[in-house]
Simulated assay, not measured.
Amino acid sequence: MKRFVATARGRVQRVSYREHVYNETFERNISGYVMNLKNGDVEIVAEGSEEELRDFINAINIIHRPIAVKSFTVRWEEATGEYADFEIVRGEIQEEIFERMDYAGNVLHSMDMKLDQGLQISKETLQVGKETLQVGKETLQVGKETLQVGKETLQVGKETLQVGKETLQVGKETLQVGKETLQVGKETLQIGKETKEEIVGLRSDTKKHLDDEFAEIRKELVSIKDALARAGIQV
């Protein structure tokens, strides 16, 4: 068991600092006292395990409106076991009343400031709410316009799909016509080959016939020439 004697300086009187110190002992096995000093400081004497005492010091060496501990000195000693529990040592009744009044005034002032801050926050929140509502309306309008565009896009997509189907059908028909045209081309080529063969054959027959005719004419001319020579006619 250990004991410390501490002095807290700063804004520690008439701000309910002693009540704060007292409340921090509730869940700790600590005995001793806290009391105001005439010079405006607060004295704390506490006994307990060293671990709990160190945690206790951290909990009471604070700056938290309206309390402001500016200096906290500690002197460690051996425990004496003279205290049964932890208590607040009160001063004269008039001093205690004034301290309560000062603390109440601080609390009211703090509540008033918080009320003003809360009112300001409420106004800002209301303004933000109005702006958010306006944004929501605009977002809804954009959503409606987007939905309309989506519907129109869907309609265009359907029409494009229909055109695609019709184009595919035309493509199939064109392919069929191409196949038929190719077949006609093949047949035309075959006819051309046959026609060429017939023409070649015809030219051959015609040439032979003409050669025979020319040969016969030459013979007749030679006969006529001989006949004229015999008649004494020179040709």
Rank of each mutant, 00 (worst) to 15 (best):
T188Y: 10
M101E: 12
K219M: 09
V163C: 01
R100D: 15
E131A: 06
M111R: 08
E198T: 13
R65I: 07
K207R: 15
G81L: 00
Q148C: 12
E51D: 15
S71A: 12
M113C: 07
Q127E: 12
G164R: 06
S31T: 14
S31F: 03
A59S: 04
R230V: 10
K207C: 12
Q169A: 14
E213D: 10
L202N: 08
K208L: 15
K70I: 10
F4D: 05
V74F: 08
Q141L: 11
G185F: 06
M35H: 12
Q141G: 06
T181F: 09
L53P: 00
E187R: 03
R3A: 14
L147N: 10
E131V: 04
A215Q: 13
E187N: 03
T160S: 11
G81M: 03
T174M: 09
K151P: 03
R28P: 00
E24W: 01
S204A: 14
E92R: 13
S49Y: 11
Q155I: 06
E159N: 04
E47H: 04
E52I: 05
V163M: 04
V235N: 03
G129C: 08
W76I: 02
G105F: 13
E131Q: 13
M1L: 14
S49P: 09
A46S: 03
E19Q: 11
Y103T: 10
E95Q: 10
N39D: 12
G171V: 04
R54E: 11
E138L: 11
R14N: 07
Q234W: 12
E51N: 11
E145R: 14
L161W: 08
K208W: 11
Y33M: 07
G10Y: 02
A229Q: 12
Q134K: 15
K219Y: 10
Y103W: 08
K172Y: 04
A104N: 08
Q117F: 09
T139S: 14
V107P: 02
K186A: 05
G48R: 05
W76D: 02
Y17H: 01
E197P: 05
R18P: 01
I93Y: 09
G232L: 06
E159T: 01
L182C: 06
L182R: 04
T25F: 00
